[in-house]
Simulated scan of single mutants.
Amino acid sequence: MIYEGKSLKLTRLPKLLQTTVSLEEPLFPDTSKKILGIFESLLQQGLISQKQYSYLVGSQPPRPRYFYLLPKIHKPADKWIVPHRMPPGRPIVSDCGSESYGAAEYLDFFFSPLSKLHPSYIRDTQHFLDNIQNIRIKEPCFLFTMDVASLYTNIEIPLGMAAIKRCLEAHLVEGRPDKELLELLHLNLTLNDFEFNGSYYLQVKGTAMGKRFAPAYANIYMTEWEQTVFQKCRKLPQHYFRYLDDIWEVGTHLEEDFQNFVEELNSHHASIRVEPTISKTAVDFLDTTTFKGPDFEQTGILATKVFFKPTDTHALLHKHSHHPKHVFRGIVKSQLLRLLRFIQLVFYCEVYYLGNKLSKYFKNYNKTSYHCAVEPVTPASLSLSQHK
């Protein structure tokens, strides 16, 4: 999409719309009947209660799904669709109130626990930090991260369905309606029609952000992708963790071996490609930076600190907002605790330095935020032991 004068004209279809076909009329009214039939069958089998049935089918008639974009303002402005004027967009298909909304939530209930069973699973930043604190690394080594490009919309539907089926078969649970789950998943993936700019489209590849089960579905697919591609790789990283489509690794091989590893990953499935970043000293992952601190050669332990994107203005709440005073104080405290937990501190004097740096940091909030009355920090006023 680009600007022409003051008007916005669609001259380049968003990536999601490139994996769709046009429709003359919506499909969701007929899809609704199919989903209702599956839920009625589950009700008759006693696998869901009447109350659950009413919740899952939702309000009738359902509304169509709508496509929209979330601007990726964190991307470099010189690489925007219109440099410094229009950022690229993250495709979202809103599923709220649609005929499949309850079905998507029902699928997520069963898929989400299964998506957390793989060895590289990372729940959140704290879970990541807990994991890397237990590893010891020897030089020479490289730190690298990889991002799976447009994962949700690049999962081939037959491959995704097969991965889910094998996962269900590998983790059998008595009373779980696997047959109905696969039927609901097939309807969600193959009949995901939506409205955009007054026209209707049918998504024919991948799943859209907006489906409740999408993160778990992608996670299970990536688990199988990892298991199969690693069998082909000649050399594997020493440590490997993944948060959905974001990957963090440590390699003790040569840089050339890493490049070969990336080529092997990108040749495994035609639609799944990774975009790597490699460094001998530091990499950014989630909202942390992992790096080789001054004592790395002696301990083999990576140091960490908080990572802020360049577009982060730290504007958490406007200073004139009518929130209770304790909310403002809570924001300051929570940010202090976050940085204390994320930053690996070796000497107590570093706590003193960090505290005074944060005092200045919060006082920089002006018209777009609020002034925080942060008292000068002394070593006695901060105790790591009581905040861990």
Rank of each mutant, 00 (worst) to 15 (best):
S7N: 12
T11A: 01
Q18W: 04
L23I: 04
F28E: 03
P29G: 07
K34R: 08
L36H: 10
L36M: 11
S41H: 02
K51V: 15
Q52H: 09
Y55F: 12
V57G: 07
R63V: 07
F67N: 02
F67Q: 01
Y68S: 01
K79C: 00
K79D: 01
W80P: 00
R85Q: 14
D95G: 05
D95M: 06
Y101W: 13
L114Y: 12
P119E: 14
Q126V: 07
N131V: 03
P140K: 10
F142T: 09
A149F: 06
M161Y: 06
I164K: 04
L168N: 10
E169K: 14
E169L: 14
A170C: 07
K179W: 11
L184P: 00
L189Q: 06
D193A: 02
E195V: 01
N197M: 02
Y201H: 04
G206V: 10
F213T: 06
P215V: 07
P215W: 06
Y217T: 07
A218W: 11
T223H: 13
W225Q: 05
C233Q: 15
R234K: 14
L236C: 03
P237M: 08
F241C: 00
I247G: 00
W248G: 02
W248T: 09
E249A: 15
E249N: 09
D257C: 07
N266A: 06
S267Y: 03
H269W: 14
P276N: 11
V283E: 12
D287R: 09
T289G: 07
K292W: 13
Q298D: 13
T304S: 15
F307R: 02
H318P: 01
S321Y: 13
F328R: 02
R329G: 13
G330E: 11
S334L: 05
L339F: 08
Q344S: 14
V351S: 05
Y352Q: 06
L354G: 11
L358K: 07
K360G: 08
Y361C: 00
A373Y: 13
A373G: 09
T378W: 11
S381E: 09
Q386K: 11
